Deep mutational scan, measured.
Amino acid sequence: VGDQVLEIVPSNEEQIKNLLQLEAQEHLQLDFWKSPTTPGETAHVRVPFVNVQAVKVFLESQGIAYSIMIED
C-alpha cells in the first residue's frame, strides 16, 4: 500500500476553509492537484501513505465527502 489520491467534495464554504487549512499543514506533505474553490466541486489531493489515515479521520470528523481516486 502506498500513497493515495483522494477525490474530495466539499459541500459548503466552511468545508472549503477546512480543506485550505489542511493544505497549509506542511508536515502532512499533501499535494493538491486541484484545490477546493467552490462547494460541490471536486478537489484532488495526493496523500503520502504515512498520512492517509490522519487525513481520512480529519475529513470524516468534518463531514467532508471523499473517495479514493487512485490507490498506489
Results as ranks from 00 to 15, higher is better:
V1C: 15
V1S: 13
G2Q: 10
D3G: 14
D3K: 06
D3S: 13
D3V: 11
Q4R: 06
Q4E: 08
V5S: 05
V5L: 09
V5Y: 11
L6Q: 01
L6V: 04
E7N: 07
V9K: 07
V9I: 11
V9P: 00
V9M: 13
P10Q: 01
P10K: 01
S11D: 09
S11M: 14
N12A: 02
N12D: 11
N12P: 00
E13Y: 14
E13R: 07
E14I: 08
E14W: 07
E14G: 07
Q15E: 05
I16S: 03
K17C: 09
K17P: 01
K17L: 12
K17R: 12
K17H: 09
N18D: 09
N18M: 14
N18E: 11
L19W: 01
L19C: 03
L20N: 06
Q21E: 12
Q21W: 15
L22K: 03
L22I: 05
L22W: 10
E23F: 14
E23K: 15
A24M: 10
A24K: 11
A24W: 13
A24F: 08
Q25V: 09
Q25E: 08
E26R: 12
E26D: 10
H27R: 05
H27M: 08
H27N: 10
L28Q: 03
L28A: 03
Q29P: 04
Q29V: 08
Q29H: 15
L30E: 01
L30M: 05
D31I: 14
D31F: 13
F32A: 02
F32P: 02
W33E: 12
W33C: 15
W33I: 14
W33H: 08
W33T: 15
K34M: 05
K34T: 11
K34N: 08
T37K: 06
T37G: 06
T37C: 06
T38G: 08
T38R: 07
T38S: 08
T38M: 10
G40C: 08
G40I: 02
G40E: 03
G40D: 03
G40H: 06
E41R: 05
E41M: 08
T42Q: 05
T42V: 14
A43Q: 04
A43F: 13
A43C: 15
H44E: 08
V45R: 00
R46W: 08
R46K: 09
R46G: 03
V47F: 01
V47E: 00
P48G: 05
P48F: 03
F49D: 07
F49S: 14
F49C: 14
F49M: 13
V50G: 10
V50A: 13
V50F: 09
N51S: 11
V52N: 03
V52P: 00
V52R: 03
Q53S: 10
Q53F: 08
V55M: 06
K56G: 03
K56V: 12
V57P: 00
V57D: 15
V57M: 14
V57L: 13
V57Y: 12
V57G: 10
F58T: 03
F58L: 05
L59H: 00
E60N: 07
E60M: 06
E60Y: 03
E60P: 00
S61M: 11
S61E: 11
S61T: 11
Q62T: 07
Q62C: 15
Q62V: 12
G63N: 08
G63F: 04
I64A: 01
I64H: 00
I64F: 04
I64R: 00
I64L: 04
I64P: 00
I64V: 03
A65F: 14
A65T: 10
A65E: 10
Y66I: 01
Y66V: 02
I68L: 09
I68V: 12
I68H: 04
I68D: 04
M69P: 04
M69G: 04
I70V: 11
I70D: 12
E71F: 07
E71I: 05
D72G: 08
D72K: 12
D72T: 09
